[in-house]
Design a protein around this nucleic acid. Structure first.
Lengths: 214, 214
DNA sequence: CGATTTCTTGAGCGATCGTTCAAGAAAGAC
DNA sequence: GTCTTTCTTGAACGATCGCTCAAGAAATCG
């Protein structure tokens, strides 16, 4: 009944005291899944404790309050493939065109992957929120707007290196691709398949700023 | 203190009994605004009664339970300009290209209009929902997928009348435009302005299926 | 007028929300 | 072994959730 301790979490784990009776990382995976599927407020502590196999007091001892658990879940989600594919593509692709194309195509596969909840946690987990949890909404919105700024930076760099025409406006295409990606997340939640979203990704790339300039 | 009765609601109002002490339509407008801004579950009966100027018992007597109130609010929203612009554009524009172009441009203006909550109620009001309210989620998702089917129908018709090439696939562009519109709603909620979304609409139209065929 | 009908008021229903507390259990330190 | 530290257990905290009920108030009908 007594499981192994967690692998390596940021607790000041010197080994003193009774060891934790559950796998902290495995429990966090369950929390991610629930927040991903239902969102922040629609996921209750009761559901979390049930899915994580942990009693409330243990959950609070290990993760703090619900907000802290959510923020840690978002951070851990960002280190999984579905949450990190954008960063990886931007880091690995040499050209901006290649980066955006890859992000769109991978979003199609990731968002509609039946192996996990549809869409993107960052996009959909704090859409409907009580005023008292406005901080959670702002937390995810800032994350999204940070990605928007990275889109714009990447396009600006592409213009500076000559990949894009000198008169290219980086602002509008950045907003456009962010729009398409957020829309793809919604579409996946509405039942769109990987094949359908791949076609959407291909169509979206028709707006790539090369032939005509704004 | 005693206001006028409602204009014309579907109650079996023969005039018997004590008249309603509040304007039913005006109260419904406040309900729309709250559901629009926060979504279904994040809007409590307490907030609704406060904003509508009505006590709980009066609300339940006039609108039934929370789910019925929401469905009526969605229906009424669909008869306001922000909720009906798609239907109007599709009805008035002779060409498919004109219809989609107009829908995209009007979505940019409507979704980021500072005069009311950002985005589209149908798109954003039931993203995060408890399992017990799964019916509300399905209700709005069906509404969205109905619009998707209308997009496809419109493109199919355009192909039949010769506006689009005979080998045009109506499915993919329909999904694409639905994706962009839902993304625009999200972007508006994240702070995108009317001008920014208008540029997104213009870029999105670059994927219009005419020059290249899938 | 009295009778009937409908709405409003104010209180409160059971359930669930996020969270915490006291007591017991399992480990290392000495 | 005992002491200390940490985690687990089970119960329960106050607050809020959606919703309802009994009593009083305001209208029409006869």
């Amino acid at each position: 009944m007594v499981g192994m301790n967690s692998t390596a979490a940021g607790d000041g784990a010197t080994g003193r005291g009774r060891p934790r009776g559950f796998d902290r990382d495995a429990a966090l995976v369950q929390a991610i899944r629930l927040f991903w599927e239902r969102g922040y407020e629609a996921t209750s502590i009761g559901e979390l404790t049930r899915a994580m196999g942990v009693r409330p007091a243990s959950l609070y001892a290990a993760f703090g309050d619900k907000k802290s658990l959510f923020e840690e879940a978002v951070a851990a989600y960002g280190r999984t493939p579905p949450g990190a594919f954008l960063d990886i593509a931007f880091a690995e692709e040499p050209t901006a065109r290649g980066a955006f194309s890859r992000v769109l195509h991978e979003a199609a596969l990731v968002y509609a992957d039946p192996a996990h909840p549809a869409g993107c946690l960052t996009i959909s987990a704090a859409t409907n929120v009580t005023p008292q949890d406005a901080g959670i909404l702002a937390f995810l919105r800032d994350l999204r707007n940070r990605n928007l700024a990275r889109f714009e930076d990447r396009l600006r760099t592409a213009r500076a290196t000559g990949e894009l025409p000198a008169d290219t406006d980086p602002h509008a295409p950045a907003r456009y691709f962010a729009t398409v990606i957020q829309g793809m997340s919604q579409q996946a939640r509405d039942g769109a398949t990987q094949a359908e979203l791949t076609r959407v990704a291909e169509l979206a790339l028709a707006a790539w700023p090369s032939a005509t300039a704004g």
